[in-house]
């Protein structure tokens, strides 16, 4: 007896991996505050540092938070796009 529509697998592996990386980034940020503030606050060409950091954090933490809600079962309503 086959069930119609296979239940999607929850991205637990991705959640854990992204969670670990995200946590590592935040721990580094807080433990190395002094050095980071020193370089990131220098201005001029060092402006790329906070911008790059923002992209990196958003990639890993964004992935983690996305998987977080999916694993919890909080997902978009399954219907065609509403215009």
């Amino acid at each position: 007896m086959e069930r119609k529509g296979v239940r999607k697998k929850k991205p637990i592996g991705k959640l854990v991996l992204m969670g670990v990386v995200s946590a590592a980034l935040y721990v580094t940020l807080l433990m190395k505050q002094d050095i980071i503030i020193d370089y990131f606050g220098r201005g001029g060409l060092y402006a790329f540092l906070p911008i790059a950091a923002a992209f990196i954090f958003s990639f890993f933490h964004g992935s983690f938070t996305g998987s977080f809600w999916t694993v919890l079962g909080v997902e978009a309503r399954k219907k065609k796009e509403v215009k």
Partner: peptide, 23 residues
């Protein structure tokens, strides 16, 4: 950032919460 005014710690801590929220 070119004027050295971004406190990246504050930005990323707020981002930690807002990325949960925005999704």
């Amino acid at each position: 950032a070119m004027h050295g005014l971004v406190d990246i710690r504050l930005s990323m801590i707020i981002l930690a919460g807002s990325l949960f929220g925005i999704q």
